[in-house]
């Protein structure tokens, strides 16, 4: 088989923490520059987690040049330099495959490393699951673009969470129900964007919240778009924009005609 046991039992080397194992699955492999890793801090609740610009990170993907290879009986250590900084890496030699894979790794070559980000006596290092030489050098460009993309994605989700909060405070006449917040936190915890992230913004949220009011949610006929425009003091075209967005996302549906809408759930 191509896979060695150590690729999957990273958790046991890390201290048998079920939390660490669970978290490891949550965020996937995060592409990072070594500078980002060097600036990562421990996230508050869990010592085995790191935080990079607000997002939790457990496993990382890095691409860089190999230096200072030191081979021992049980492990191989080396320093990875991606031009933004340097990072210590450690590959345990448990299976014959681990040894076989490390034989390809020489001083000065570019490699792609997947591993578990760890900290020992304040020094960060990566417990390597997999390391392979880079043969197509576009991969280096791609890796850095992936780092930028990951950064944009995580900071965008945070920004939405931030502006979400503002909307709640700045629209006193709009009771925002838990559903919307729950939806937002699901979005950020999955750290992925299943649909248009700009979807539930200011007006959309106001429309949704109005349709979710118990009186309106209980109305079989639904609520007329004119009523929405009137009650929310918004132009009809803005209402219709929001209606389309919310309908596309399956959060509302039209009832007796295309002017009456109802929320799909009360929260």
């Amino acid at each position: 088989m191509m896979f060695s046991e150590s690729q999957f039992d990273g958790g046991s080397q890390i201290g048998n923490s079920p939390a660490a194992a669970a978290n490891r699955d949550t965020f996937g492999l995060v592409p990072l520059t070594i500078k980002q890793i060097s600036e990562a801090s421990h996230s508050g609740d869990d010592k085995s987690n790191f935080n990079v610009s607000g997002a939790d990170v457990v496993n990382v993907t890095v691409v860089g040049m190999v230096f200072n290879i030191v081979e021992r009986n049980t492990d191989v250590t080396f320093t990875l330099d991606d031009g933004t900084g340097k990072l210590d890496c450690k590959r345990w030699l448990n299976e014959p495959f681990d040894r076989l894979q490390m034989e390809e790794i020489r001083e000065g070559i570019y490699v792609h490393v997947d591993g578990h980000l760890k900290s020992f006596k304040g020094e960060k290092h990566v417990a390597v699951f997999s390391v392979r030489p880079v043969t197509n050098f576009d991969e280096i460009t791609f890796h850095f673009i992936a780092c930028i993309h990951n950064h944009m994605r995580t900071s965008k989700v945070q920004k939405i969470q931030g502006s979400d909060g503002e909307n709640i405070n700045s629209t006193p006449n709009t009771p925002i129900q838990n559903g919307t917040n729950g939806f937002m936190s699901t979005l950020s915890s999955q750290n992925s964007v299943p649909f248009n992230v700009d979807g539930v913004k200011g007006f959309d949220q106001m429309v949704l919240a109005y349709l979710q009011l118990p009186a309106n949610y209980g109305n079989e006929k639904g609520t007329h778009t004119d009523e929405l425009a009137q009650k929310l003091k918004l132009p009809l075209n803005k209402i219709m924009e929001s209606i389309r967005t919310l309908e596309d996302e399956g959060m509302i549906y039209s009832t007796i005609d295309e002017f009456h809408y109802k929320a799909t759930s009360s929260n």
Binding site: T33, K35, T84, F144, C147, H151
Partner: peptide, 15 residues
């Protein structure tokens, strides 16, 4: 294009 990004808005990820 990567060079431009790495010296532009995303400079802090690189230097």
């Amino acid at each position: 294009q990567l060079c431009q990004h790495a010296n532009g808005d995303f400079r802090h990820l690189f230097i």
